[in-house]
Simulated assay, not measured.
Amino acid sequence: MAVLAPFLVLCAFVLEFHHVEATADTLSCLDSSFCLGELEVIYPGLEIDKCLIVQKDLRKKLTTLWKAPRINFSGADEAKVYVLVMVDPDAPSRNNPKAANWRHWLVVDIQGNALKKGEIEGTTLTEYHPPTPPKKTGLHRYQFMLFEQPPDTSVSLAEKESSSRGKWDLLAFITRFNLGKPVATLQFLTKNYED
């Protein structure tokens, strides 16, 4: 019997591992590794502080009911200003991202002291648009990236960028304003609430 107990524990572990791997709504290692820093995205019924897949029962609220989330970054330097970007790199689908990066939200000049308290005091260049993945396109990643804004830099969108949210060249934007690497990143995955 003493030999049987470790065998049963090992079997349970292997079966559970297999179950997790087989689930369609499980984060891949690549998706999990995106989240860095102490960024928090807070909706009325959902607090996100790590990479996750939004539960099915919350997807409709996320798309149709909830407004822009609160953003909290406890690591913010009170004397600095920040840029917040929210994009969907999977528009219209992860297998065919021809409209990536879809810009869902862009705020610049965010004061560090407000950000540390979970408030966004800055200039909105692109109003918040909730996640609205099309039907039958699977999971979409909604990525939040927080950058330090270089001192005395006025960040804006070019006229062409302002006219469309889709096919946004995020890398060109980052390069143009010398934003460097994000200080914190966070993402959640969700799909159409009717799927």
Rank of each mutant, 00 (worst) to 15 (best):
K136V: 02
P97G: 04
V81K: 15
D31A: 15
I53S: 02
K167A: 11
T26I: 06
S33A: 15
A2C: 01
G112Q: 03
S74I: 11
E127K: 13
A2D: 08
E127Q: 11
A24Y: 10
Y142G: 01
S33N: 12
E194W: 11
I174C: 07
D195Y: 10
P97Y: 06
D109S: 07
R165N: 13
A68N: 05
L52F: 01
L125D: 01
V81C: 12
N72G: 01
S74M: 11
Q111H: 06
K167I: 03
L15R: 08
H140W: 07
A76C: 10
F34K: 07
S28C: 06
K167G: 03
L115I: 03
A114H: 07
F13S: 08
E47A: 12
A2F: 10
Y193S: 09
C35S: 15
P182K: 09
T63L: 02
G75H: 09
T126Q: 13
H104C: 02
D77N: 15
N178S: 15
T137L: 04
K56R: 13
A172Y: 07
L52G: 03
W168M: 08
V3I: 13
T124Q: 11
P89Y: 10
D49R: 13
V14I: 15
A158V: 04
S154E: 14
I174F: 06
S93F: 05
S163N: 12
V183Y: 05
L106N: 01
G37P: 05
P44K: 10
T137N: 03
T126P: 00
E148Q: 14
L15D: 02
T126H: 06
L106G: 00
D57A: 09
R141D: 06
F173R: 01
L39C: 07
I53M: 09
E40M: 12
G75T: 03
F73H: 13
L36E: 13
D169A: 11
H140R: 08
V41W: 07
V9C: 10
L62R: 04
L146N: 06
V108N: 01
S93K: 03
F144Y: 14
C35M: 10
T153P: 03
V183Q: 08
F144M: 08
L39S: 03
D49T: 12
F17C: 09
V107W: 00
A12L: 13
N72P: 00
H129F: 12
Q149K: 15
K80T: 00
K98I: 12
G180T: 05
E78N: 14
S74N: 10
Y142D: 01
S164W: 02
P150A: 08
E148P: 04
V20D: 08
L65W: 08
V83L: 07
V85K: 01
F173G: 00
L125W: 06
P131R: 01
T63H: 09
